[in-house]
Each structure stands twice: as structure tokens, then as C-alpha cells.
């Protein structure tokens, strides 16, 4: 057990810790501070996050996560009315899949909408086709979507009448029917068994993401 507010006192303690670290590292069982076990080690399994789910999809039928058990899955939560971060994230995933080439056959991108009232299965199909026809969107009732969001600890909140303060936003017109979603922005990387192995963001370097995807494809 380690307590993170403890500071090693003196050179002897530092040397002892360094020696212990070297000993453990040489045994091949060191887990570093990021929870990863070094470049040659597998990505960690994050036990608390994720799980099996099933929901209506842009394929015109219900799909479950287990259908993609032979693929590495990149999962993202967003909504089609979003005009900046969600399409930027999907464009990022589009570039990732494109650069993977043939290996992308083993990758599945899933978008779970946080706006199921608007994002029907048909609407998701049309929207995702702009990025990659292989991308699959998931929708359903509010309860179904919330269940998936809870599995992945995703927060989302629909808001009306948001006050805006910059020029960009002042130029927009908000009506009684307009709304915004605040939602978690992470991209979940799931292995072929559907387990969460890493998280990324729109700004995550593509090379880093590709390395992780390839590592899971090779498992």
C-alpha cells in the first residue's frame, strides 16, 4: 500500500526505494503510476468501467456490445445536433480508422447518443455516414441510454437557455426549442472481450491511439 502524501525522507530512503523499484521492475511485475505495466506490458483492464449493453441502432435493429467481441471497439457518447466537439471527435476517429488501413476491419466505432429524443436510428445512420459508413450509432429510450451511460460513468445534462458570453456564441440564436447537452467527452477503448482498456480524447495523438488499438488487435 502506498499513501500519496508521504515524501521519502533523505537520500537513504530514496536509494532504498530506487533499489526496491529496480528489483520489482526486474521481476517483470512493475505497474507504473499510469496503471500501465510498461511499453511491453498489456494495457490495464479497468474493472469498474463498462459492461454489456444492448440498444436500438443505426443498423435498423438492436445491437449488443457482445456482437463485437472479435473486434476492438472505440466508444463515444455524443449527439448529432452538436456542432463542434462531437463531429470533431468523430472526425478524429475517422482519421484513426483510415490510417489503420486493413487493420481497421478489426475495429468498430460506436456512438451512443445522449439525445435519444432527437437521434433516431435513421437519423444516426444518415449522420454517421458522413464520417464512415461502418460507424454504428446507438439510441433507444432515455432509460436505455442512461443505463449505458451509467455503465461507463458518463455524465450528461440537457440545458435550456444557456447564457453565453463570447462573440461566437452571441451570434447564435437560441429559441425555446434549442438546447445544449453537457456531457463527458472521453473515447473508450474496449478490447475484443468488451473490457475497458484505455481512455482517449479528441485531442489524443492519433499515433498513441493507433498503438493502443493495434496492441489490442494483437492480443
Amino acid at each position: 500500500m502506498q499513501t500519496r502524501d508521504r515524501v521519502p525522507q533523505g537520500m537513504i530512503a530514496t536509494l532504498l526505494i530506487a533499489m526496491c523499484s529496480l528489483l520489482v521492475a526486474s521481476s517483470g511485475q512493475l505497474i507504473n503510476s499510469e496503471g500501465q505495466a510498461g511499453s511491453e506490458k498489456p494495457l490495464p483492464i479497468h474493472d469498474d468501467v463498462g459492461g454489456e449493453f444492448s440498444a436500438p441502432s443505426s443498423l435498423g435493429r438492436d445491437v449488443s456490445l457482445s456482437e463485437f467481441r472479435d473486434k476492438v471497439v472505440l466508444l463515444f457518447f455524443g449527439y448529432t445536433s452538436c456542432q463542434d466537439v462531437c463531429p470533431a471527435t468523430l472526425a478524429h476517429l475517422q482519421a484513426l480508422v483510415r490510417d489503420l488501413g486493413k487493420a481497421s476491419d478489426g475495429v468498430q466505432v460506436l456512438l451512443v447518443t445522449v439525445d435519444p429524443e432527437n437521434d433516431t436510428a435513421d437519423h444516426l445512420e444518415q449522420y454517421l455516414a458522413r464520417f464512415d459508413t461502418r460507424f454504428v450509432g446507438l439510441t433507444g429510450t432515455r432509460k436505455e441510454v442512461d443505463r449505458i451511460a451509467n455503465l461507463f460513468m458518463v455524465k450528461h445534462d440537457r440545458s435550456h437557455g444557456i447564457e453565453v458570453s463570447n462573440e461566437y456564441n452571441r451570434a447564435k440564436t437560441f429559441t425555446d426549442h434549442s438546447y445544449l447537452y453537457s456531457h463527458s467527452q472521453q473515447i473508450y477503448l474496449l478490447d475484443k472481450a468488451g473490457r475497458t482498456r484505455a481512455l482517449f480524447f479528441t485531442g489524443s495523438p492519433l499515433e498513441e491511439m493507433q498503438d493502443a488499438v493495434i496492441a489490442l488487435l494483437n492480443e
Partner: peptide, 9 residues
């Protein structure tokens, strides 16, 4: 850094 949320417009 994953606790934060974003607002999509």
C-alpha cells in the same frame, strides 16, 4: 482529467 464535461453547442 476525465471528470470534466464539455458543453456541445
Amino acid at each position: 482529467g476525465t471528470g470534466s464535461q464539455i458543453v456541445c453547442y
